[in-house]
Every structure is written in C-alpha cells, then in structure tokens.
Design a binder for these strands. Structure first.
Lengths: 342, 342
DNA sequence: GTGAAAGCGCTAACAT
DNA sequence: ATGTTAGCGCTTTCAC
C-alpha cells in the first residue's frame, strides 16, 4: 500500500484561493452555474486552466450520488455478438460522460450477484444486461429500482422493466420459411439455453414455421449457444447417420462451430447442407451462410439512451420502455432466388 | 435529476449505532482489522448481515485514494483479438476486486486523451493499454506516474514503463520461414499501421526472413489492421494481375478480409494461394490458415498482475517489468509437412 | 452574485 | 480493544 496519496493535483480549494473567491463560487464555475459574474467566472477559469485542475468525480459522486458509471453485463465478451454491442454501448455512454464496466457473467448467477455487489459499492448508476437468465430476480432485488436497469438482447421475464431486443420471432419465421422455400425439408435446429428468451423465441418461431409445411421434418439439438455446442450437435447428427438438408444455428457462434464440424467431415456447403444462423455478423458473411441480421448497434445505442432517460425519471412517473428491433434476412452471396431440386 | 439520493441503504454509522459500538470499530470490522474482539466483531457482523449493509466504495475511495477501477484501452473491441484479451483482463481484475472500464480509442489521440481525463476524474487506479500509438507521450504525462500503466500487445516506445507483449519478431520469422519452406517465393504481406510496434516488428522480421532466401519476392501492402485493409490489399493485387504464392496478414482480422476477397475472386485456398495470419484465434482455425498463435489469455493476466503489483510499489523502488511471451506456429489442419511443387 | 457552513460515508491517526 | 477527532474534495442550503 505504498501508493502515494495526493496523486490528485490541485483541489477546488486551491483554485478558489488563487482566484480570490470562495470554494462555492469556484464550484459554481465548474458546474456552469449561471449565477456567476462573467468577470469572476473568467478569473476562475483562468486559474483552472493554469493549474490543470479537474474535479474529483469521487468527491462529487459522494455528494451527488452519481458516479457516471454504467455496467454492461454479458455472459461472454468472446461471443462475437457482444463486442459489437459493447462498442455501441460504450460509444453512446461515453458521449454522455459515462464510463462502462464490462462484466462477464458466464451465465452464472453467482457471478451476476458478485458483479452487482461490486458495482453497487462503486456507485454504479445503471446497468445494461445483455444476458439475462436465472439471475433476473436477484439482480432486480439487489438493484432495488427498475429504473436502474435496461435489458438488451434477451427479454426479461418481468414486463415492468425496460428492454431492447430484436424481433426474434419474426426473424426466425422468415429464416425458416426461406429455407423451406429453397426446398429444404429436413432441418436441424441447434437450440440455445432455455433460460435465454431470444433462444426460446427463435426455436418457437422455427417450430411454428415448420408446422406450416407438410413433410417438413424437424430435428432439435440442445446446446448452450457456444461454438462447441454447434460442433457437437453436428458431430452427433453426422455420427448418427442423420441426413439433413439444412441446419439452423441459434447464433453465429454456434454456426461457426457447426461450420467447422461440417468442413471437418467434408460436408460441402451449401451443396450438401445449407447452414443458417442469427446475428448477421461479419463471420456469417465470411462463412457465406444465410443469417438473420440484427441491428446490434441500434440495440446498444437505444439501451443506453433508454437507461439514461429513465435514470432522470422520478420513481412514480417511471414507465418501462419496450423496444423491439426489426431483423433482416441476409441470404448467401450466391443464393439462388429459388431452388426446386432435392 | 429526479434521481433519489439516499438510494444507498444503511451507512456505517447505522451499523455502529445498532451494534452499540463506534464507527471506527465498525470500520475495523469491515476492513478485517485484527484489533477487534471476536465477540464485538460478531455482533457487528450480525448487524451488517441483518441490514444488508455494504460499504460505499466512493466514500472509501475519497479517503484512501483507491477506487478499484482499472481501464483497458483498445482501439476497437470489435477486432477479435481484443475480446479474448478483455476477458482475461476482466477475470483477473475481478479476482482482485477491480472493475474494468473498456475504452475504444479508435487509435485516435483525442479519444485516448478524453478517456484518460474521464478516468482520472473517476479515480482510476491504473490502465492497461493494449493499443498504444501516437498517444503514448500524452498518456504518460496525464497519468504522471509510470506505475499506473502497463502496456500490452503493442510495445511502448519508452523502456521505463512495463509491458507484456508477444515475441512478434520470433513469431513472424517462424511463419515466414515456414511459408518459404513450403516452396512459396512470392509472398504478399499486408502490413499494419506503422505506429503499432507489433505490426512493425512483424514486418521487419518478415523482411529479414525473406532476405535469407534467394529468389524470394516480397510485396507489401500498407493497411490499418482492419478487415477492410485486408480485403483491399488482396483486391489491389488481384486487379493488378500480381501473382502470389502466399499472403501474410498482420492479424486475423486482416486475414479475414483477405480471405473474403480471395473467396470472392474464386481464388482457392490453400491451393492457389496460402493465407497466413497472426493471433491464432478461433477464426483463423475456421479459415484453416496458418497462424502465429499468441498467448492472449496469459497476456491479459500478466498485464493485470504486473499493474496491481506495481501500484503497491513506492515511486523509488519501482522498476518496469518487460514480459515477452512466446508464440507458436499453428499450421493448417491439412498442412503438408513439406511441399516442393509450384 | 457571492460566501460560510454543514455534511456526503468513510478511514486514519491519535487517544484512552 | 475501542472511541474521538479530523478530514478526503466536493455540493448545497442558507445568509448576506
């Protein structure tokens, strides 16, 4: 603990003294309070500039209760969906003067709990939770105020909190219908964890769309939305001698795993099997698979805006905002406009 | 500004009162100070538990000068190298009770400057900068203490600060020699920005290795280490009718762009052209290209450990730590042990 | 328009 | 082993 305190340079008191004013006046200046004579303000500003003074956010936070700190909860920043979201969130937050702490919950309740604890201690203003799961109730109780959280990506169980999600139902429906229209009938679906609403919605919509077409055969593999589960699902199907026309992966990460497994087994894409995913990330373009593109950047920006807006709301006027973003089906580069063979 | 202050529940004073002790004793308990009778300690602990009390990190930070906040500076979290690093950094930091704010500098000096400003205000303890560039001098001056920063990934110009980097020189040498040993002679190198030491080191080593083999022809395309620059470099070469045996991309992101461009132009990999990259990320495995694998996780962990260690060092005993991590060449899955044709 | 004073919730000497 | 007393650097009434 040899850390030199006093790291921080000049204080407001220093500024005040050198400018020949009181601390409160100096304070008014740095807060842009109107009740300061221009002349005084200039004098203070000059001293501030000369000293290279900047206010202590900590001291300020102690009295105002605002620390200008947001948190972004994701289960694993390594899943390529999240960096895209994180960048948007971070950019938008920064524009409003907020720092954002990124937290990897690993979809484990204890991690969420620990994070929220640490964050609360550090004066957290609000959180954007992009990976709600079993932790929803506990987080809400720890936060003790619905205004302090906005869910993204995965829809929370409670309707009384704000969220920004993609229209997974519509996206999945469109995707499955597209595959069916290509003549595919035996379609494998690599599902995600059941505690994730987006995974559930996608599967449900897929099932509904499949049910519309006679002769459509549905195979479902359960996974945890990681690359590994994509690879394992494919390996299992192939090992079992299952013949498939197409495979739908719950996200691009899973699609990546499936892609690898298929390539390993010398299955040709898209000739032998058509692979499809969600997210519409660069990686899906690279694999040249069909993908349901999400407006990830908008999701991040809106989540931050919604959060900051409701933080300034009074507890009684607060009404949760529910935003559902449209998705867009992105076909393969060389996708046929229709296909009847098979 | 309708935010309800008093958000924070019970204070230490509340705890003290209910436990019938002074604040200092209560403080000792939460800090695990030894000088407290077990009996007293238990009584206080009981009250703490009953009240759900947790200390205000802000008040604490105001007096101790430690906010338990680290920052990770990257130019773009979307570059797949960084999420891997970020996860390691975040995990290690969390284990020590630190939060980490992720900052996207976009390799722009102004952004670095703004971030450091905001961070400093918020009581930042230290920073891990994984994307140093032109901002080095300014950041050091703003931070005003070399103990508060550890560089990762890109080596800083100054030797008096700590860093953790990969042995890019060795990695690139091994890679180029490998390509040459496969019989490749005309090798295109998609370079990165010259302000990035890792990019410079890789190029320099490549040039040296190429110079060792008579008949080896080197082509260099300059880029900014993004997917786009990989795609553009390839497109330019192909448009110019340049024939290449192999292409080395400065990182996996660039390789991804190159990959896409090659596939678009119906160039077969690896038969027509062998593609190689750095990072050794999942994505490189997926593209099935040769890649110089880096120990990204170790890099993150070591960066945090180095930083936290030197934060507890006194200014005079401080000596920067320079860590260079070994790399490993990962061949393609179906890589030939040697190849003489072509 | 400006200043004085109280206090945010804690830690850290210093007493006892 | 425990309590007392100052602050940490600000904001915020409340006077003037």
């Amino acid at each position: 603990m040899a850390r030199s305190r006093g790291n921080r340079g000049p204080t407001l008191a220093d500024v005040a003294r050198l400018a020949g004013v009181s601390v409160s006046t100096a304070s008014r200046v740095i807060r842009n309070h109107p009740d300061v004579r221009v002349e005084t303000k200039d004098r203070v500003s000059e001293v501030i500039a000369r000293l290279g003074y900047y206010p202590s956010g900590i001291a300020r936070a102690l009295v105002t209760g605002r620390a200008n700190l947001l948190a972004l909860l994701v289960n694993d920043i390594t899943n390529p969906f999240y960096p895209a979201l994180a960048r948007a969130v971070e950019r938008e937050a920064r524009q409003h003067g907020y720092l954002v702490a990124v937290c990897n919950t690993e979809d484990r309740l204890e991690e969420s709990r620990r994070y929220i604890g640490t964050l609360l201690q550090n004066g957290l203003d609000g959180v954007i939770h992009a990976s709600v799961g079993d932790d929803e109730a506990e987080i809400m109780s720890l936060l003790s105020d619905a205004r302090r959280i906005v869910f993204a990506n995965r829809r929370p169980a409670s309707a009384s909190v704000s969220y920004v999600v993609s229209d997974n139902q519509a996206g999945a429906t469109e995707l499955t219908r597209h595959l069916l229209s290509q003549g595919h009938r035996r379609i494998g679906f690599v599902a995600g964890p059941s505690f994730a609403s987006n995974a559930r919605d996608r599967l449900a919509a897929h099932e509904a769309a499949m049910a519309e077409v006679p002769g459509a055969e549905m195979l479902i593999a359960w996974g945890d939305a990681t690359m590994k589960s994509g690879a394992r699902a494919v390996a299992d199907w192939l090992d079992a001698g299952v013949r498939l026309d197409a495979i739908v992966a719950i996200n691009d990460s899973v699609a990546l795993g499936a892609f690898e497994a298929l390539v390993d087994r010398r299955v040709r894409l898209p000739d032998d099997v058509e692979l499809a995913g969600f997210d519409g990330l660069t990686i899906s373009k690279m694999m040249n698979i069909v993908s349901v593109e999400q407006r990830i950047e908008d999701m991040g920006i809106l989540a931050v805006q919604t959060l900051l807006a409701q933080l300034d709301t009074s507890p009684d006027t607060f009404h949760p905002v529910h935003t559902v973003l449209p998705t867009r089906l992105v076909p393969r580069r060389d996708a046929p406009s229709s296909r009847s063979t098979r």
